[in-house]
């Protein structure tokens, strides 16, 4: 599978340029690779290693720590159902069970048509809106079993184009216009910040 596309390389270089140390861009770049391919491929990780200047093993070492990075293909829609405490109290586990029956898979598995992966997840910061879930990290609050079925039908029928395929997170990217950029401050840049220095000069003069 794929290395990063030329457009994504351009984006990757822009992202790397924002950090004092290139390796700091690793997680954002892994997200970019996952956006491109739906999961992380060995080729993309090797390509990221080249761009960042570390070994592929280091890239894998970081990637494998984080749950959102998928080393194997997952469904077009990853359905994360929260069963942590606030959701458990209000039917999160029953919702998960319903989802397992409706889709015929256990948590962590993908439907044979490649459309849905179901996951049993920890608190997603929507506790007052329990039970809740995310589809590709988009929230659905206070969801009933019927609403869940409707959502699955809509997704399967392609009626939810507000939800991008798995891998895409923010569809708006930060872009710093070159003329507005203050620039990276490297650990080696030991000068006193200008505004701090000028404030102490003023103080000394006063």
């Amino acid at each position: 599978m794929a290395r990063l596309s030329p457009d994504n390389v351009t984006l990757a270089l822009e992202i790397i340029g924002r950090y004092p140390r290139p390796k700091s861009a690793l997680i954002p770049l892994l997200h970019l690779a996952q956006e491109q391919d739906g999961h992380l491929t060995d080729d993309a990780m090797a390509h990221i290693a080249e761009l960042v200047g570390v070994t592929p093993a280091e890239v894998l070492g970081t990637a494998s720590f984080y749950e959102m990075f998928k080393m194997e293909p997952v469904g077009r829609y990853v359905v994360n159902i929260c069963t942590n405490i606030a959701c458990q109290l209000l039917g999160g586990e029953e919702l998960l069970e319903h989802a397992e029956h409706r889709l015929g898979v256990r948590p962590g598995q993908t439907t044979p048509d490649g459309l849905f992966t179901v996951e049993d997840v920890e608190c997603i910061a929507a506790c007052t809106e329990a039970p809740c879930l995310q589809v590709n990290y988009r929230y659905f609050h206070r969801i009933t079993h019927d609403e869940f079925d409707q959502l699955v039908d809509d997704l399967a029928a392609g009626r939810r184009d507000d939800i991008p395929p798995h891998g895409t997170l923010a569809r708006v990217r930060q872009h710093i216009p070159p003329e507005r950029r203050a620039g990276c401050v490297l650990p080696e840049d030991t000068a006193t910040p200008v505004w701090i220095a000028s404030a102490s000069t003023e103080e000394a003069e006063a």
Binding site: Y19, I27, P28, Y66, M68, E122, Q174, A182, V194
Partner: peptide, 17 residues
């Protein structure tokens, strides 16, 4: 218009409490 300059960089994690 002052001498105060700073970049604020948006970055994000990948799932780990």
């Amino acid at each position: 218009g002052t001498d105060y300059s700073i970049d604020v960089v948006l970055t994000w994690g990948a799932g780990a409490y």
